[in-house]
């Protein structure tokens, strides 16, 4: 089975372990992820902070290229790229003159026939049913699932999970045998793209997230966004300074956690690339249990 794929710049650089783990689990369950030919950067925060048309055109070029390549579904693991793509698709499909203008700017025609999936939707639709037969180890740890901003907001456009207390990642982790805790910072912002240009704010916002997860006894923070990961992991020195104490809680991509449970080699999942060492051991053989979770209902959107 083949699905379209947009890695984005982070997954090719500072967050390559996210890419490695997405690829590793896709391979394990027999899904081929096909990258958009000649894809470009989505423009991220920089583009929409400075110029609206640029922020629409950069993602639109990728979407048009994906359509040209005959792709119908696109997996976008980076939460920021996913947010930009979904927002752009929404805006263009609801504004005919703008849609025409953007097609002129990019010199291509984007029709809008693409389904855009974030990593959790990808897992939910294509991976989760294959877990029971493939899982080797139980992820028997207490984890704090951290969603951040861009996977769940704005709900009106993304229509994904609940905006204040999302559950999709928690359900996946519970299925793998983890104890997914209730905590207060699930959807609070980590400071996102200000890692370099406003580090004090990132230290404080990410510091509060790490502190709450540790305080409630989590052994790992599970994420699905490269910006959340780099702020919580690579900024740990600044976080610890802000909190006035050292913390060693690792930050793990949900795809790495699934990979660990599937028995994939930890190196292949890139777990050695984190700044905060991942020393999770003693995973027990997996025994399937019925878990007591109800799928969250999407908020009604008129």
């Amino acid at each position: 089975m083949k699905l379209g794929f947009y890695p984005g710049c982070s997954l090719e650089g500072a967050s390559r372990e996210y890419n490695e783990s997405v690829m590793a689990i896709a391979e394990k369950i027999g899904i081929e992820l096909v990258s958009i030919p000649d894809w470009n950067c989505c423009g991220a925060t920089a583009a929409h902070n400075l110029n609206k048309e640029l922020s629409l055109s950069l993602p639109a070029r990728n979407l048009a290229l994906a359509e040209e390549a005959g792709l119908t579904e696109l997996v976008v693991p980076c939460a920021a790229c996913y947010s930009r793509f979904t927002m752009v698709q929404h805006e263009l499909m609801h504004d005919e003159p703008l849609h025409k203008r953007v097609n002129e700017i990019i010199g291509k025609e984007y029709k809008g026939n693409l389904r855009i999936l974030n990593v959790i939707q990808f897992i939910d639709e294509y991976v989760i049913d294959k877990l029971d037969e493939n899982v080797k180890f139980e992820f028997n740890k207490k984890v704090a699932c951290y969603y951040g901003c861009l996977l769940v907001r704005p709900n009106k456009v993304l229509k994904f999970d609940r905006t204040e207390d999302p559950q999709t990642m928690d359900i996946v982790m519970k299925k793998l045998g983890a104890d997914a805790i209730d905590w207060a910072y699930k959807t609070e912002c980590c400071g996102a793209g200000f890692s370099v240009s406003f580090t004090e704010a990132v230290a404080r916002l990410s510091g509060n997230i790490v502190e709450d997860a540790v305080h409630r006894g989590a052994e790992a923070i599970i994420v699905a966004c490269p910006m959340c990961h780099s702020n919580l992991d690579m900024r740990r020195k600044e976080i610890d300074k802000f909190n006035g104490k050292k913390s060693d809680i690792p930050v793990i991509y949900i795809t790495q956690a699934i990979g660990v449970a599937l028995g994939i080699d930890h190196k292949k999942l890139g777990l050695q690339r984190h700044f905060v060492p991942v020393n999770l051991k003693d995973f027990k053989p997996f025994v399937k249990k019925e878990i007591d979770v109800e799928k969250p209902q999407n908020m009604e959107v008129e």
Partner: peptide, 11 residues
């Protein structure tokens, strides 16, 4: 400029 575009306000 300090706005992070985190979308909490609109949520």
């Amino acid at each position: 400029w300090y706005c992070l575009s985190c979308e909490m306000c609109i949520a």
